[in-house]
């Protein structure tokens, strides 16, 4: 499933480079300290997550491009 990110998160990702045509791979830290690695963001605005992960974009503390 995919969730739409907040405007400020979309703006941040739009300013960062892609890893391929139409997508970015990111590491996310939530406000509760949990981390999610190598998540795909489409069109700098849609975060792809597993059904069981259920993330609220408001819970996201930081989004960084994944750097392998």
């Amino acid at each position: 499933m995919k969730i739409k990110l907040l405007k400020k998160q979309i703006e941040l990702l739009t300013s960062l480079p892609e890893q391929g045509m139409g997508y970015q791979i990111v590491d996310i830290t939530l406000k509760n300290g949990r981390t999610l690695k190598e998540k795909v963001v489409l069109n700098s605005m849609y975060l792809q997550i597993d059904e069981k992960e259920k993330i609220d974009p408001n819970e996201i503390q930081t989004i960084k491009l994944h750097n392998k």
């Binding site: 480079p17 892609e18 045509m21 139409g22 069109n43 700098s44 605005m45």
Partner: peptide
């Protein structure tokens, strides 16, 4: 050419009619 499922491709600056930094095409 940049292919996308989305009409509002975020990597195109439609105002300045250009491709934004760090973007891929074919």
């Amino acid at each position: 050419v940049r292919l996308s499922p989305y009409e509002n491709d975020r990597r195109i600056d439609f105002e300045k009619r250009k491709l934004k930094k760090g973007s891929y095409t074919t």
